[in-house]
Design a protein around this nucleic acid. Structure first.
Length: 679
RNA sequence: GCUGCUGUAGCUCAGCUGGUAGAGCACCUCCUUGGUAAGGAGGAGGUCAUGGGUUCGAGUCCCAUCAGCAGCUCCA
C-alpha cells in the first residue's frame, strides 16, 4: 500500500475518503460541518480539530455544536475558569472539573475563601482569556512525564488521578493546554476560548475530594455556559421560574405547612395541608381494600432490646431518637418492620394465610443530619405508606408484580411521566447465599420486565439483606428523590441460623440475640415450619415527600380531589350573600370543600385572590344566578366563564372527585360540553 | 455533620463608611354595592433570630449558639 493512498473512514456514520495524516478538522470540512465543528473522537479518545486522525481508526466522530457540543463547551468553560482562578490565585490546586447536566464546576483547593465578589472577579478574568482567543492544544505524555508535569505544578490531586488511571491500565495521559494553563484531562474541548462567550458563575460550596467524607474538602465553584447569550438568559429565566414551583415557597403561600425552630426538620401541617394528607390516605385505603391489604398500628416507642434484635441498633442507631422510661432505654421507631414482625409472630401462621399484606401509616422519626434536611423532601418526622408483605417463596414474583401494578396505578393517578426505576443488586457486604441473591434479583428483574418497566441496574447498591427496586422522581430544580421502594428481605424473618457474615456492622458476634432476628415461620402443606419472605414496600415513599413532589409537579394547583379548597363562591354584591351561602351549603352537603368570600372587595379582586389560592372552581353568583339557581363557573386555568345549574355543577364535581381526575383542563372540557346555553 | 452564604413587621424586601427602624402586600376601621387578576382613605403592627462582646452609642462591627439556603456527605 502506497503511503499517499487515501483511506476509507466512517465519520459520524458517513463514509469518507481521507488523506493520510488528515486532521479531524479536514474531516469536518469534508463533512460540511467545518464551521460548527468543535472536536474529534476516535479509538475511545478525544482530540482537537488540529490533531491527526489516528492511523488505526476506521471510525471517527466529529463533535459539533449540535452533536454533544454543550458538554464540550461547558467542560472547556471549567478549564477556562480554572485558568482564571490560577491567574488570580497562583497557589490554587485543582481536583476535578467536569461538565454537568446544567453546567459545570471545578473543585479548587485554595486557602483563600472564594466569595461571591470573587466570582465576579473570576468572570472578568475569564472574559479576558476569552478575548485572547487562546487555542486548546492537546498533548500526550507517558505516565512518568505526566506525573512529573503535575508535580512540577504542585497538583497532588491530579497526581492521584494519574496514579489511579495508571493502576487501571491506562498508558497514555492526555493534557490540554490553553494560554498558560495546562491540565491533565481527557477532553474534548472547543477549539479556542473564543467559543466560550456566554458563561456565568453561580456559587461556591464545599465538596469532599473524590466524594469521601474523610477527605479534604475543596471549594466547588459552579457555573454554566451556553453557545449564545440568549440561551444563557433563557436558562437563568427557567431557573427563576422553577423556583416559583418550590414546594417550600408554595407551601407557605398556600398555607399548607410550616416549619418551626422548636422542631427542626419536622413539619407542621396546617388545615389545608392536612386535607391533602388525608385525601392521599383515603386514596391509599381505598386501594388497600381492593388489593387485599390489612392495616395495623404498632407502638411508636419501643424498648431498645427490639432494635438490637432487628439490627437497627447496630446499623441505624445514628439516625434514631432515644428516650427512656424509668431505667429502661427506649427508641422512637424509624421504621415499621420490627413491629410488623411482632404482629406476625403473635399467633401461628399457616401457608393458607399467606400472603399477608400488612400496611401502616404511623409516623416515623429519623434523626437525619442537619445538613440533609430539605423542606418536606427530607424530614426527621414523617409517615410512610408502608407495608410489609409476608409471603411464600413461590409467591414472591406474583407479589412483586402485584406491588408494581399498584404502584403504576398510583403514579398514573398523579400523572407522573418521568419516573426513574432502578434495580439495586447485591452489595459487597451482604448476607445470605449467592443462590438466594440470584433468585431474588432474578425475581425482581423478571417482574420489572413482565411489568414492562424500563429500568437501570444499580449494581452493588442493594440493601445488605436483599436487592431492591427504587422509584425516583425529580423536583422543580431537577433534584432526584426516591419515592417508591420495593425491597426483598431475607434478614428480619431469619432465626438463629443467621450469622453475621459481613452484614452485621457493629454487632458483636458473641451476642446470640444479635444473631437471631425474628425467627418468623409458617406451617407449610408438609406440616413443616417454613421461613416466609418479607417484601418491604412503599409507593408514595413518605406522605411528606410525596406531598412536596406533588406540589412541585402541579405548581400547587392540585386536582379537584386533592385541592384543599375545591370551590369558592363569590357573591357580586352583599344582597347575594345569602344565595352564596346556599350554594356553599349545597356543595358542603355533597361532600365538597367550599367557602364563600364575602369580603367587601370588588369581584375582580376576589377573583384574583381565588386564582392565586389556586382554587379549582370559582363560582360567581348575582341576581341571574340566584333566580335560576345556577352558578357562573370560572374553572382554574381557564378564564372562560360557563353558566351551570347548581345541581349539574355538583354532579360534575362529585364525579371528578370520585374518579380522582387529573388534569384541570379535562374538567374544563367536560364543563364546556355540559354548559347550559347561557342567556 | 462539613464548606460557604443568609436571618429586619404575617409575607417580599429596603436600611450608605455604627447615631437607637422603613416600603409594598396582608391585617383592622371607615367610605365604595361592586359581574371575573389589585377601588379609595385612615390605622395598628418590629427586644432588627438568640446570647455575649467592642463602643459614649450596635439592625449595622466581633464571637458563640440556633435556624434556614446551596453544594458535598449520608439516606435499611
Amino acid at each position: 500500500m502506497s503511503v499517499d493512498s487515501k483511506r476509507a473512514l466512517v465519520v459520524n456514520g458517513k463514509k469518507l475518503e481521507v488523506e493520510p495524516g488528515a486532521t479531524f478538522g479536514k474531516a469536518a470540512q469534508a463533512l460540511g460541518v467545518g464551521k460548527i465543528a468543535l472536536a474529534g473522537r476516535a479509538l475511545g479518545r478525544s482530540y482537537t480539530l488540529d490533531d491527526k486522525i489516528p492511523e488505526g481508526a476506521s471510525e471517527a466522530e466529529i463533535l459539533t455544536k449540535e452533536r454533544g457540543g454543550l458538554a464540550v463547551l461547558r467542560h472547556s468553560a471549567s478549564h477556562l475558569m480554572a485558568s482564571a482562578i490560577k491567574r488570580l490565585w497562583p497557589e490554587a490546586r485543582f481536583g476535578t472539573g467536569p461538565d454537568t447536566e446544567k453546567g459545570f464546576y471545578y473543585d479548587v483547593d485554595l486557602a483563600h475563601r472564594i466569595s461571591d465578589e470573587d466570582l465576579r472577579k473570576i468572570e472578568a478574568e475569564m472574559k479576558k482569556i476569552v478575548s485572547e482567543d487562546a487555542k486548546f492544544e492537546r498533548s500526550e505524555l507517558s505516565r512518568e512525564e505526566a506525573e512529573k508535569l503535575v508535580l512540577s505544578k504542585n497538583e497532588s490531586f491530579k497526581q492521584e488521578l494519574i496514579r489511579d488511571h495508571a493502576a487501571g491500565g491506562e498508558t497514555v495521559f492526555s493534557f490540554y493546554k490553553h494560554s498558560d494553563f495546562v491540565d491533565y484531562c481527557e477532553g474534548p474541548h472547543v477549539p479556542s476560548t473564543a467559543w466560550i462567550k456566554a458563561v456565568k458563575l453561580h456559587d461556591v460550596s464545599g465538596s469532599y475530594w473524590r466524594g469521601k467524607e474523610g477527605n479534604p474538602q475543596l471549594q466547588r465553584v459552579r457555573g454554566t455556559a451556553f453557545f449564545s447569550e440568549k440561551d444563557l438568559q433563557q436558562h437563568e429565566k427557567n431557573i427563576e421560574e422553577a423556583k416559583n414551583r418550590d414546594h417550600r415557597k408554595l407551601g407557605q403561600q398556600l398555607d399548607l405547612f410550616s416549619f418551626n425552630d422548636f422542631a427542626p426538620g419536622i413539619p407542621f401541617f396546617h388545615p389545608r395541608g392536612v386535607t391533602v394528607y388525608n385525601e392521599l390516605l383515603a386514596f391509599l385505603r381505598d386501594e388497600y381494600r381492593k388489593r387485599g391489604y390489612v392495616e395495623v398500628r404498632a407502638p411508636l416507642v419501643l424498648k431498645v432490646d427490639l432494635w438490637h434484635r432487628s439490627g437497627h441498633y447496630a446499623n441505624y442507631r445514628e439516625n434514631m431518637f432515644f428516650t427512656q422510661s424509668e431505667d429502661v432505654e427506649m427508641a422512637v421507631k424509624p421504621m415499621n418492620c420490627p413491629g410488623h414482625c411482632l404482629i406476625f409472630k403473635e399467633r401461628p401462621r399457616s401457608y393458607r394465610d399467606l400472603p399477608i399484606r400488612m400496611a401502616e401509616f404511623s409516623p416515623l422519626h429519623r434523626n437525619e443530619r442537619s445538613g440533609t434536611l430539605h423542606g418536606l423532601m427530607r424530614v426527621r418526622g414523617f409517615s410512610q405508606d408502608d407495608a410489609h408483605i409476608f409471603c411464600r417463596e413461590d409467591q414472591l414474583e406474583q407479589e412483586v408484580l402485584h406491588c408494581i401494578a399498584f404502584l403504576k396505578k398510583v403514579y398514573d393517578t398523579f400523572g407522573f411521566k418521568d419516573v426513574k426505576v432502578e434495580l439495586s443488586t447485591r452489595p459487597e457486604k451482604s448476607i445470605g447465599t449467592k443462590e438466594l441473591w440470584q433468585k431474588a434479583e432474578g425475581a425482581l428483574e423478571n417482574a420489572l420486565n413482565k411489568a414492562g418497566l424500563n429500568f437501570r441496574i444499580n449494581a452493588g447498591d442493594g440493601a445488605f439483606y436483599g436487592p431492591k427496586i427504587d422509584f425516583h422522581i425529580t423536583d422543580a430544580l431537577d433534584r432526584s428523590w426516591q419515592c417508591g421502594t420495593l425491597q426483598l428481605d431475607y434478614n428480619l424473618p431469619s432465626g438463629p441460623e443467621y450469622s453475621s457474615q459481613g452484614g452485621g456492622g457493629g454487632e458483636s458476634p458473641a451476642s446470640k440475640e444479635a444473631n437471631s432476628r425474628f425467627d418468623l415461620s409458617y406451617k407449610g402443606q408438609d406440616n413443616q415450619p417454613h421461613r416466609p419472605v418479607m417484601i418491604h414496600r412503599a409507593l408514595l415513599g413518605s406522605l411528606e415527600r410525596m406531598i412536596g413532589v406533588l406540589i412541585e409537579h402541579w405548581a400547587g394547583a392540585f386536582p379537584l380531589w386533592l385541592a384543599p379548597e375545591q370551590a369558592r363562591v363569590l357573591p357580586v354584591a352583599e344582597a347575594f350573600v345569602s344565595y352564596a351561602r346556599e350554594v356553599e351549603k349545597a356543595l358542603f352537603d355533597a361532600g365538597l370543600r367550599a367557602s364563600v368570600d364575602d369580603s367587601p372587595e370588588k369581584v375582580g379582586k376576589r377573583v384574583r385572590d381565588a386564582v392565586l389560592a389556586k382554587v379549582p372552581y370559582v363560582l360567581v353568583v348575582g341576581e341571574k344566578e340566584a333566580q335560576a339557581r345556577s352558578v357562573t363557573v370560572r374553572a382554574r386555568s381557564s378564564e372562560k366563564q360557563v353558566v351551570l345549574s347548581l345541581s349539574s355543577l355538583i354532579e360534575r364535581a362529585r364525579g371528578e372527585v370520585a374518579r380522582r381526575e387529573l388534569a384541570p383542563e379535562a374538567s374544563t372540557t367536560s364543563l364546556d360540553a355540559a354548559a347550559a346555553p347561557s342567556s
